[in-house]
Design a protein around this nucleic acid. Structure first.
Lengths: 211, 211
DNA sequence: CGGCGCCTCACCCGTTCGGGTGAGGGACGT
DNA sequence: ACGTCCCTCACCCGAACGGGTGAGGCGCCG
C-alpha cells in the first residue's frame, strides 16, 4: 500500500550498469534511482547522505570487499536492504555478504523484470537468491531442494488457472478445493512474485517464463 | 515456438539510451541488440551491414531528419520495422516518419515492459503509437474503417495498462481520467472480447495477438 | 441538421479479490 | 521426536472489480 517509491542507490564500477539501472528504475513507479557510486567508499558515503531503501551493490568494487561494505552500511542503517550484483558466482564472497546482512544476490545477466521483481520482494522483506547460486549457498534445507522464491506445485497450478481467466471460485471447483484454499495459494504466490494482484502476478510470471 | 531473437539496431545520440537499450534488450529472449548508431548516417550504414529486424530510431539525430533516415532505410529494406523514439511529441516530424514507413512512435519515458511489448507488436506487423501522440496523430475519422468488434484507441490503451497490472484507479491517474471512465472502457472492451473480468480479457487478447 | 460513435463521467449495487490471522494434518529430513 | 514446509480450510474486512443505467460533449458523415 505504500505508494511512495523506494529509493535505490546503485554502486558499480561499470558506468554502463549505472545508466542501465537508472533507466530501469526510472521506468518503475515503485522505485526511484536516488544515487550512484563507483567505489565502495563512495557507496558508504552515498548511503549515509541519501538514506536509501535499497543498496544495489556490485560484488567487486575497486577499493573494498563487498562484505566490508555491507557490514559498514548495515551498522549505520540496519533497515537498509542490500542486493548483491555479481557477474560470476564467487561463492565465498557472496556467502560473506549474506552473513554481513545482504538480502539478495543476483547475477548481472538477470533480466530487467526479474531484477525489478527481486527488488520488489526485497523491499517487502524477502530474501532473493539467484537459482544458480542458491544451490551452492544452501546445501541444507528440509524441502525438496526447491530454489528460494520459486513456486510450489499447488501455487503453480493456481497460477496457471488464473492465467486462463478463472476466478477463485472456479479454480476451487476445478481442483476440488475450497475457495479459501485457493485464496491462500494465491496470496502465497503473489508474495513470492512481488505482485499485488493476479494481473501483476501474470505480468511477472510472463517475464520469468513461468507461463 | 522458440524463434530466433529479432535483431535490433538502436540509433540515438545519447549513449545512456544506447546502453539502457542494450541492457533492456539483452534481458529479453525475444530480442537481440545487434548494433548501435549515434548519427543518422551511421544508422543507415548499420542497417545495411547488419540487416536487423528492427531499427529503433531517435527522432532527433545530429545530422539527418528522422524521416529522411526512415525513407533511405526503407528503400533498401522494405521489411525492416522502424520504431521512432522521441523525448517530446513533435507532431510534424512524427507524422513524416510514419509517412516514410515507420511502424511505431514511442516516448522515451516509456517503461521497459511497454517498450518491449511495443517492439513485440511491431515485429508482428502491427503499428504502435504512444497514446499521448496517437490523439494528435489521428484527428481524422469518426470510425476510420475500424473492423467490426475491434477495440477503440482508448480501449486499447486501457487494455495495455491492465496487462501491466495497473488497477482501475492507477490507470485513471496515468491517463488523467476519472476511474469511472476507465471502468466504462473496461466494460466496453470486456464485452467486445467476451470476457467477464480483466484476466479473461488478457487471455483472449493474447490469443488474438492483441498484446 | 440529425444521427452515430467515441470519450467522458456519475451513481448504485452485488461480487470478487487481497490481506490478516489462525489452525489442523501430513510428509520429510535431522 | 521435532521442526519445517506444504496443503488444507476458516472467518473477517476493506478495497477493487463487474454490471447496469444515464448523461453531456464532440466530431464526422449522410
Amino acid at each position: 500500500m505504500t505508494r511512495n517509491p523506494r529509493t535505490v542507490v546503485v554502486a558499480d564500477d561499470h558506468p554502463i550498469v549505472l545508466s542501465g539501472m537508472r533507466l530501469l528504475l526510472s521506468g518503475s513507479r515503485f522505485f526511484e534511482f536516488a544515487g550512484e557510486a563507483r567505489t565502495g567508499a563512495e557507496a558508504i558515503l552515498r548511503c549515509d547522505q541519501l538514506r536509501p531503501d535499497v543498496l544495489l551493490l556490485d560484488l567487486r568494487l575497486p577499493d573494498l570487499p563487498a562484505a566490508t561494505i555491507c557490514q559498514r552500511v548495515k551498522e549505520r542503517q540496519p533497515d537498509l536492504a542490500i542486493v548483491i550484483l555479481t557477474a560470476h558466482p564467487e561463492e565465498m564472497a557472496v556467502r560473506q555478504c549474506l552473513k554481513a546482512g545482504a538480502s539478495a544476490c543476483l547475477f548481472k545477466d538477470t533480466g530487467e523484470q526479474q531484477l525489478l521483481s527481486a527488488l520488489m520482494q526485497v523491499v517487502h522483506g524477502r530474501a532473493v537468491l539467484d537459482p544458480r547460486i542458491a544451490g551452492a549457498m544452501l546445501p541444507r534445507r528440509a524441502n525438496g531442494g526447491r530454489p528460494e522464491g520459486s513456486l510450489t506445485d499447488r501455487e503453480r497450478d493456481v497460477l496457471m488457472m488464473i492465467a486462463r481467466g478463472l476466478t477463485t471460485q472456479e479454480i476451487g471447483e476445478q481442483l476440488g478445493l475450497s475457495p479459501n484454499t485457493i485464496k491462500s495459494h494465491s496470496r502465497a504466490l503473489f508474495t513470492k512474485l512481488g505482485a499485488h494482484n493476479r494481473v501483476q502476478a501474470l505480468a511477472v510470471a510472463q517475464e520469468r517464463g513461468l507461463i
